[in-house]
C-alpha cells in the first residue's frame, strides 16, 4: 500500500498527488512513468513522474480526470492509500548537452511536459515553453511553467487566456522569425504532436514526442502499447515513451487509441452514476 501524503487540486479536473514510494524514487528520472492501481477491481493506469523527491521519498503525479479510473483516483484524499504503485518505467528523457529547447505542452500533456522542462531548466538549458489549452478554465501548471522558463507562452483556442491560437500557430511564428532550437519536445494529444512534428520537419528541427498508448503492464509483456516508429514495431512502455516525432506513424496511433472508446465511455458513465448515488446518500 502506498500512502498519498499530499493532494493539491490544480483545476476542477486536474490534481497533483505526492505518494510515498521509496523504492520507486531511487532510480526515477525525468521522462519515466509509473503504473498504479487504486484498488483490486481497478485497471492498471500509467502516469508520468512529475517529480521524484529523494528527501521525502515521494513521487508526484499530475493527472486529469478523463475516465472511470482517473475519477476513482481523484476521489482519494490525503492519507488514503493506493494499492499498487510500480516504477520507474520506460526510458528517461535524453536531455544531456541541449543548449536551447522549446517545450510544448498541450492540455493534459502539460503534466508530462512539465518535469522535462524542469529538468532542462535545472541543467541550465534555455527553455522556451509553449503551453496550450482549449479555454481558460482548463489551464493548469502555467505559473509552474513560467517559473522554470526563459521564455513562456500560453495559448488558448478561443483566446480566453494568453494568446489566441494553437501551439503550432505560435511555434510557426517563432520559427519564421528565425528562432531556432536544438530540439523541440512536444507532448499532448496525438493530433497536436503530429502537427508539431510535421511543422518542425520542414525546419529540420529534431522533435521528441511522448507516446501515451493504452498500456496494461508497462513492462513489455503484453504488446498492447505497440506503435510503429521508422516502420518498425516498438513497445512504448519499454522502448519509449519518447520517440523521434518525425518517425512516428501518428495516423495509426490515432486509430489504435480509439479501440476501447465506447467501453470506456460506459465505464465512465457508470462511475459517475455511482458517484452521484454516493453523494445523494450523504
Amino acid at each position: 500500500m502506498f500512502k498519498i501524503v499530499l493532494k493539491t487540486i490544480l483545476t476542477p479536473s486536474v490534481s497533483l498527488m505526492k505518494i510515498y514510494a521509496p523504492n520507486v524514487v531511487k532510480h526515477a528520472k525525468p521522462g519515466q512513468f509509473i503504473v498504479l492501481r487504486t484498488d483490486s477491481d481497478s485497471e492498471r493506469i500509467p502516469f508520468t513522474i512529475a517529480e521524484a523527491n529523494q528527501d521525502d521519498q515521494t513521487i508526484a503525479i499530475i493527472f486529469q480526470v478523463v475516465g472511470a479510473s482517473t475519477l476513482k483516483l481523484n476521489q482519494l484524499k490525503e492519507n488514503d492509500y493506493i494499492l499498487d504503485f510500480a516504477g520507474p518505467l520506460g526510458k528517461p528523457s535524453q536531455i544531456d548537452g541541449l543548449k536551447k529547447v522549446c517545450v510544448i505542452g498541450g492540455g493534459l500533456g502539460c503534466a508530462i511536459a512539465y518535469p522535462i522542462a524542469k529538468a532542462l531548466h535545472n541543467q541550465k538549458t534555455y527553455v522556451h515553453s509553449i503551453i496550450g489549452f482549449r479555454k481558460k478554465e482548463l489551464v493548469f501548471l502555467s505559473s509552474e511553467f513560467k517559473d522554470i522558463s526563459d521564455c513562456f507562452d500560453l495559448v488558448t483556442d478561443d483566446g480566453s487566456a494568453g494568446k489566441m491560437g494553437l501551439v503550432t500557430t505560435l511555434l510557426k511564428a517563432l520559427l519564421d522569425q528565425d528562432n531556432t532550437f536544438d530540439e523541440v519536445f512536444a507532448i499532448g494529444p496525438l493530433v497536436m504532436m503530429k502537427a508539431v512534428s510535421e511543422l518542425t520537419k520542414q525546419y529540420g528541427i529534431k522533435t521528441i514526442v511522448s507516446m501515451n498508448p493504452i498500456m496494461i503492464d508497462g513492462t513489455g509483456m503484453c504488446g498492447g502499447c505497440r506503435i510503429t516508429v521508422n516502420n518498425k514495431m516498438r513497445f512504448a512502455c519499454v522502448d519509449g515513451p519518447e520517440f523521434d516525432g518525425h518517425q512516428v506513424d501518428f495516423d495509426e496511433a490515432i486509430l489504435r487509441n480509439k479501440m476501447y472508446e465506447s467501453a470506456e465511455r460506459k465505464a465512465y458513465d457508470h462511475a459517475c452514476h455511482l458517484l452521484k448515488e454516493v453523494q445523494n446518500d450523504q
Binding site: M221, C222, M233, L255, M259
Partner: peptide
C-alpha cells in the same frame, strides 16, 4: 514474457492482440 509478432501487414489493427495481452 515478451510476445512475438509475425511482422506481417495488419498487425497494428484494432482487434489484434498478443495472447499475453
Amino acid at each position: 514474457g515478451l510476445p512475438k509478432f509475425m511482422g506481417i501487414p495488419g498487425e497494428m489493427l484494432n482487434g489484434v492482440y498478443s495472447a499475453n495481452e
